[in-house]
Amino acid sequence: MIQVQNLTKYYHEFCAVDQINLHIAKGQIVGLLGPNGAGKTTTLRMLTGYFMPTSGDIRVKDYSVHQDSLKIKDMIGYLPESAPLYKGMLVYDYLDHIAGIRGLKGENKSKRIKELADMCSLREIMHKTVDTLSKGLKQRVGLAHAMMSDPEILVLDEPTSGLDPNQIVEIREIIRKIGEEKTVILSTHILSEAEATCDRIVIVNKGQIIADGNLEDIKGEAGRGAMIHIALQQADPDEARIVLQQVEGVDSVNALKAENGELVRLQLTCRASADPRPHIYHAIKGTNWVLIEFRQETKTLENIFRELTREN
């Protein structure tokens, strides 16, 4: 559906997007993730035809942004960050205007506007001006704007930023509903959002893709060297460290100071692609220590993200 080839964008000397390659299949919900200034918005803006790449190409179906920008714009519905709609217009007038530009006429137009009003719950606010709306409502109008032509591809730049938790859930539900049939690309720096809505996650940092795959892939990839926490009673910290160090699959052991002179806390870092938990259990079983706590730290997307995007 969408093929991004060696996409590069320079703002004067500054390289915002650096040789990105990406293939997006039909019907995927793709989350573009990255810290602020990573190049997410720039990438989306090139995809939607707001500006041209410095070099490289984006092809949607068989059209290239360089030659057939208008055809691509026809296929894409886009909601920029914080929905910059025309402030002075009534919501209805605004949607009517967009519907006209999207080529809808007469009965089809009013039918589509009604559908979107129901889908995005806009019925009550149709006759308010845009600048009187709260951020969440504006975002919903923006979503209706993006979906006006029932586009095959929906591009959303930080669709939930600045919304309250209820609104976030609402918008996410709408996105997921759309994603059942359409290709959706959304950017965010809120990780739980990508986790909640996306089939595929692409992590971008400093203009480059540093991880790409579904959540499990990324967790697996970055999750190597998982951390295991153990708390023991009636054990000597040094002795415990030596015993556990010898367990197969354990990379390093860090013994924390004993609490109350009794409880020994240990942090075990595991080697990649190994699960040493059974071996640890057996090693402890062979001693007379009392196992109080035994847990593996589950890697959240937050940790992975921080690990991948951390400055060296």
Partner: peptide
Amino acid sequence: NAGSYELLLTLPLS
């Protein structure tokens, strides 16, 4: 200034 230029340019308009 308002950013609606971005919306305008991403609509199918020359």
